[in-house]
Amino acid sequence: GEEMDTAEIARQVKEQLIKHNIGQRIFGHYVLGLSQGSVSEILARPKPWNKLTVRGKEPFHKMKQFLSDEQNILALRSIQGR
């Protein structure tokens, strides 16, 4: 696969979550399948791509996919709003 700019992906995700008022817990649960603790760690201190294991890269693939389609963001927003 291609190398990803993990810091940039994390920054964009944080931006979207704040902009749409989506909590990290909801994002972690529905998008990444991770706990809030793992999510906040990944978003606060993303490791460089070449330092990640295959498993460590997974959340970034999912985040990139999440960012690529605004429908994903809107869907999360409606879950959050319940």
Rank of each mutant, 00 (worst) to 15 (best):
I26L: 13
A10T: 10
G28S: 11
I42D: 02
P59S: 15
V39Y: 03
L32H: 02
V31H: 00
D5K: 06
Q36C: 08
I79V: 13
R55D: 14
A10I: 06
G23L: 10
E70R: 11
R77F: 04
R82C: 11
G33D: 06
N21A: 08
Q65I: 10
S68W: 04
S78K: 14
V54N: 15
F27C: 00
M4D: 05
Q36W: 12
L43V: 02
S35K: 12
F27L: 04
L74A: 12
I42M: 13
E58C: 04
G33L: 01
S40A: 14
E3D: 13
I22H: 00
D69G: 06
E3Y: 10
K64Y: 09
F60Y: 13
K19Y: 06
P46I: 06
I73P: 05
E70C: 09
G28T: 04
L67M: 06
I9Q: 03
Q71T: 12
S68P: 02
R11A: 08
G37S: 14
E8S: 09
L34G: 04
S68I: 07
N21W: 02
I42L: 12
E15N: 05
M63F: 02
G56Q: 15
V13R: 03
R45A: 14
L32G: 01
R11V: 05
H20Q: 05
L43R: 00
S68N: 09
F60E: 01
R25V: 10
S38P: 10
G56P: 02
I26M: 10
Q24Y: 12
A7Y: 10
L67H: 00
G23E: 15
G33I: 00
D69K: 09
T53K: 02
R25L: 07
V13E: 03
G33M: 03
K19M: 06
K47L: 14
R77P: 04
R55I: 08
V31W: 08
D5C: 07
V54T: 14
D69I: 04
L74D: 12
H61E: 13
Q24V: 14
P46D: 01
T53R: 02
P46E: 01
A7P: 03
R45W: 07
Q80K: 09
I26P: 03
F66D: 00
P48G: 03
L43Y: 02
D5E: 08
T53L: 04
S78I: 11
G37Q: 15
Q80A: 14
R77Y: 09
E2L: 07
E15G: 05
A75N: 15
F60A: 00
I18E: 15
K64E: 08
Q80I: 10
G1P: 11
S40T: 14
W49R: 03
G1N: 12
I42H: 04
V54F: 10
A75R: 14
D69A: 08
L67C: 04
G28P: 02
V31F: 06
I73W: 14
G1S: 13
G23M: 09
H20E: 04
E41D: 11
T53Q: 05
I22D: 00
Y30L: 09
H20Y: 14
W49N: 01
K47S: 09
N50E: 10
H20W: 10
G1C: 12
T6L: 00
E70V: 08
E8Y: 05
A75L: 11
G1W: 08
L76W: 03
I42E: 02
S78D: 15
S38L: 13
Q36F: 08
G37K: 15
I79A: 11
I79C: 13
R77K: 15
V39A: 07
N21M: 04
Q24M: 12
H29D: 12
K47G: 06
L52Y: 03
L76K: 01
N72C: 10
K64L: 11
P46R: 00
H29S: 10
R11I: 04
A44C: 08
L52T: 00
